[in-house]
């Protein structure tokens, strides 16, 4: 296959593989947790990128699919006693199906209206789950830790989930590349540039957008199950966190929306930066950086939006023809 020889595919894949293997080599729990967060973010950001970067639709509430998948999978494991793997797959399927239904409705909206609708859906879903007693209402659900025994105890379980998340991150990157270089992806990018002109050229925008929305929701749904299984608890506030949604947007923007490598780079840089800000002792105007990490992150975001809106990879691609060929 031609795709395998393309540096645009193997560069990001190799990066993710090396990243994922690193904690296994060092065998330090703290490294594994940091990398876990990066891999999770890569999976989520790359998925979001299909909608945001390729299709040009700004989903402010994309984390809703992470939360929905999380709740679905958690319920199957906790209440019905399912195994993690099938539960996670169902989590993805639930997220994808709901995305299809929602997408058919809200993808008719454009620009700011779509962005607002996604926020509304996230908040509506959160408020709805709070009222669902079978999902634990406002306090959510908690796993019986005995469950972890089936996975070789808590210590082994952490590794199992880690490898599962790493695998999903790889799939997300692979998917992201293949969509970008497919006819389907070309249609999405045409929609991003000028939806009406794309339709005049024959792109069935409504259908393409719905597929993109579903594709961008499935992996977050699976990741939701994996993440909350590892946490052992799930509650509405942590499953449907608007702030996390926006962090994903920041990652995609930071690395470069519409590129394959961008969300990977963005996820890595953002997570590392967050950790280093949180543990920093440096003070700025008498305020410790760690106390104002949110403000520092905000300032960084502002600088990116104002000065390099195409993100790091987008910027590099625009600089040289060689990089344009090598980086996707």
């Amino acid at each position: 296959m031609k795709a395998w020889r393309s540096p645009g595919l193997w560069i990001p894949l190799v990066i993710v593989v090396i990243l994922a293997a690193y904690p296994a080599l060092t065998d330090k729990a703290s490294t594994r947790e940091t990398v876990f967060n990066v891999l999770l973010a890569i999976g989520l950001a790359s998925s979001l990128n299909i909608l945001l970067g390729y299709t040009g639709y700004v989903s402010f509430g994309h984390i809703v699919f992470f939360g929905l998948g999380g709740y679905a999978g958690f319920y199957l494991i906790d209440v019905l006693g399912w195994n993690l793997l099938p539960a996670a797959l169902v989590g993805g399927a639930v997220a994808g199906s709901i995305a299809l239904l929602l997408g058919l409705a809200i993808l008719r909206l454009r620009g700011a209206y779509f962005a607002l609708a996604t926020i509304g859906i996230l908040e509506a879903m959160k408020a709805l789950v709070i009222n669902m007693d079978f999902l634990g209402g406002p306090t959510g659900m908690e796993l019986n830790f005995q469950v972890y025994k089936d996975y070789g105890g808590a210590g082994q379980m952490l590794w199992t989930v880690y490898w599962a998340v790493a695998a999903i991150a790889l799939i997300a990157v692979f998917l992201s590349f293949n969509v970008k270089l497919s006819k389907f992806g070309l249609g999405l990018m045409a929609i991003r540039e000028d939806e009406d002109a794309a339709e005049v050229m024959g792109v069935v925008a409504q259908r393409a957008k719905a597929y993109a929305y579903v594709l961008s929701a499935i992996l977050p749904g699976i990741l939701g199950t994996l993440f909350f299984f590892k946490q052992g608890v799930i509650e509405p506030g942590s499953a449907f966190r608007l702030h996390m949604s926006i962090e994903l947007l920041v990652m995609v923007m930071l690395g470069g929306a519409g590129t394959v490598l961008g969300p990977i780079l963005g996820a890595g840089v953002y997570q590392v930066l967050r950790v280093s800000l949180l543990t920093s002792d440096v003070a700025l105007l008498g305020l410790r950086i760690r106390d104002i990490q949110l403000a520092v992150a905000g300032l960084l975001l502002l600088l990116i939006v104002l000065f390099i809106p195409s993100g790091a990879i987008g910027w590099l691609r625009s600089r040289s023809n060689v990089l344009r060929r090598v980086l996707e």
Binding site: L52, G56, V58, F60, G111, A112, A115, I246, L249, V250, M253, A257, L287, R288, D291, I292, Q293, L294, A295, V296, A297, G298, L299, L301, L302, V305, L306, P309
Partner: peptide, 23 residues
């Protein structure tokens, strides 16, 4: 610029105010 830019620009102001305000 496209909508995303102004949304993110104002959101970054949100983060800055909340970050400093919390401290």
């Amino acid at each position: 610029a496209p909508h995303l830019s102004s949304l993110l620009a104002t959101f970054s102001v949100n983060m800055i105010i909340i970050g400093l305000g919390t401290a």
